[in-house]
Design a protein around this nucleic acid. Sequence first.
DNA 1: TTCCTTATTGCAACTTTTTGCAATAGTATA
DNA 2: TATACTATTGCAAAAAGTTGCAATAAGGAA
Lengths: 141, 141
Amino acid sequence: MFCSEAYTPQLRARGYRMTPQRLAILHVLRHSAKHLSPIEVYRQARADVPSLTETTVYRTLEFLAENGLAHPAHLGNGHLVYEIAGHEHHHLKCRSCGSEMEVEHALLQKLYRQLESESGYHLTDSHITFFGLCPDCQKGQ
Amino acid sequence: MFCSEAYTPQLRARGYRMTPQRLAILHVLRHSAKHLSPIEVYRQARADVPSLTETTVYRTLEFLAENGLAHPAHLGNGHLVYEIAGHEHHHLKCRSCGSEMEVEHALLQKLYRQLESESGYHLTDSHITFFGLCPDCQKGQ
DNA sequence: TTCCTTATTGCAACTTTTTGCAATAGTATA
DNA sequence: TATACTATTGCAAAAAGTTGCAATAAGGAA
């Protein structure tokens, strides 16, 4: 029924459980073309699980992020949005028109290595969003 | 009285006004060793301006950020913190012990240029925080 | 100094997010 | 299939953050 059932083994392997709430939330993320706010996820997932609460959505999104099934992102307004985990990428957003594009994580490999050697840290992940003016908005200036 | 009065000309030049609230908030940021959450700023600044409200703090911090006097940062918990503008930098935070270090923006210059040429965007700013394990916590593993 | 314009603030209501705890329900085991 | 363990959920209350609007006050001009 839910394509999101494919995630069940991953959770079980870590000692976690699959629940209707998690299935519904994963399903929503899975079929969204863009990142969603917790409230958007809540509204959509409630269609499948009417008893769902905001609390559970917030906790589940955080849980999915911790377990690598979803990725959180900051897009400039101070609020977190989430998207299903897939290829690693970051975001580049236009300050003027709000349009966005993805930045492949591969582009940051060199920087990651440099940072690791300079800092001694072992990097695990990052929250990265770039802002600027897209080509169209530059012309408009 | 307030060292933050030094910021007055910058605001006036742009058609904005300096107010006791802004002076107090800038003063707090100026003398904090670390980034502060809006609530922390509120509690501290209220000492100088008892009538201060949370609303004003939120709006002022956003205002200061827009005008380059303060910098917002995301440190992984989904909440914004602010620090006074100074040298441009980003943050590198240990996922294990929470300790932080700064990453000079200069390190990202090359990446910025590459991104600009590949995307066609003109980059203005970014929200960047790296996460990993600090040298001490790596030993602990 | 006084007046005037309008940027800024505070208030009140509302939305979003977090937290503690008791009740519920996955799932491994017998 | 029934049992037990405990991960997970929902509820209620609190905390954090936002919004619209009327009142206030900064600061330029008279």
